[in-house]
């Protein structure tokens, strides 16, 4: 492992492809793409489909980045979708209840900026709660976030009584449906976050510390790393990312719901594992997330076009997750022998 770190091309190091995982994953993604292009060429291989896919996957991608961070430290965050929905529900209520109906257009934009800041703050706050439960009270991450997931989702249910909240201003749709220079805004947001996280993980002491905490928390503590602070920051970042995903989801669907996208939890874990994150911590790459989320999107879009039910997708995803874990087991076994 250390050998790989020392050598290798600079580009490869930046990509975070310490091992053959990214290459293998890229091949799987490419194969999925080709397979779908062959099976449904008229609908899959079109500009229209590419464009619509580019609007669909960023929200899952952002949630997966958050999941990756938690898993890097050897934890997990099951409350991500709960946080995303809670902050989007609160944003929706802010628009409905607080925004004057006859606000001039430029002030509406200002109001939206305010709401975005509110969402981020909420996300950070929810993440802070997760972080305190995990790092300060030492509750196992799976239980802590299982509990907060219930609380965040529950709070959103209490507020909405289970119904969808609508009534966003027109300009708000830009976040989820707009595009700049032909590229969708959600995709741009996702790419910026991805690049930012990749840089933080690869180039900063903070990123290195996270990986170290994940691979051996005790060693990290003895090395003088402030484990508690790092963990809290990790879950706070996760919360902020979740709230951004929430903004995109509510803007794209023009509604906020307490139970939107619950299957994203499984999918984000799947993407993180696919992307090369070791579930027991200590290894991961932001770029892997991009490739993995693309693979999942190709699979998902292709399946819809083949007119399979959503449930068949769930079936395939479950199998995919298991298969990738098994493949990883064998490839990592090989690398150990070298």
């Amino acid at each position: 492992m250390s050998k790989r770190r020392e050598g290798g091309l600079e580009l490869r190091r930046f990509l975070g492809s310490g091992d053959s995982n990214l290459l293998q994953l890229s091949l799987i993604t490419l194969a999925t793409f080709i397979l779908m292009s062959v099976l449904v060429p008229d609908t899959f291989l079109t500009v229209r489909n590419m464009r619509s896919m580019s609007f669909q996957f960023p929200e899952l991608g952002i949630l997966s980045l958050a999941m990756m961070l938690a898993m890097l430290t050897g934890g997990i965050d099951l409350s991500l979708v709960g946080m995303a929905n809670l902050s989007s529900v609160i944003c929706a209520f802010t628009f409905v209840k607080l925004m004057p109906k006859d606000l001039p257009s430029d002030q509406v934009v200002l109001f939206i900026v305010g709401v975005v800041i509110l969402a981020l703050t909420l996300g950070l706050l929810c993440g802070l709660i997760n972080g305190i439960l995990i790092a300060t009270l030492h509750i196992p991450p799976i239980l802590a976030t299982l509990g907060t997931m219930q609380v965040y989702t529950g709070a959103a249910i209490v507020m909405t009584r289970g119904a969808a909240v609508i009534g966003f201003p027109e300009q708000y749709a830009f976040i989820g449906n707009g595009s700049i220079a032909g590229v969708g805004v959600p995709l741009l947001i996702f790419l910026v976050l991805l690049l930012g996280l990749a840089l933080i993980l690869r180039r900063t002491a903070f990123g290195m510390h996270l990986v170290l905490i994940g691979s051996n928390a005790k060693a990290a503590r003895f090395a003088g790393i402030k484990v508690r602070r790092h963990l809290i920051l990790t879950y706070m970042t996760g919360g902020a990312l979740a709230s951004i995903a929430g903004l995109i989801m509510s803007s794209r669907t023009n509604a906020a719901k307490a139970d939107y996208g619950t299957s994203y939890i499984l999918q984000s874990i799947l993407v993180a594992v696919l992307g090369g994150v070791n579930p027991s911590g200590g290894r991961g790459a932001a770029v892997g997330i991009l490739v993995a989320v693309l693979a999942l999107q190709f699979l998902s879009s292709g399946f819809s076009m083949l007119r399979y039910s959503n449930f068949a997708k769930e079936f395939v995803w479950g199998l995919f997750l298991l298969l990738i874990m098994i493949v990883n087991y064998f490839t990592s076994g090989e690398s150990r022998e070298k």
């Binding site: 079936f315 995803w317 874990m325």
Partner: peptide, 19 residues
């Protein structure tokens, strides 16, 4: 990891049943 495995099998079994 048991969490990941049971997440996968649970999802696969539910999907299989409904599909």
């Amino acid at each position: 990891a048991p969490l990941i495995v049971t997440l996968g099998t649970g999802s696969a079994v539910t999907g299989f049943l409904r599909a």
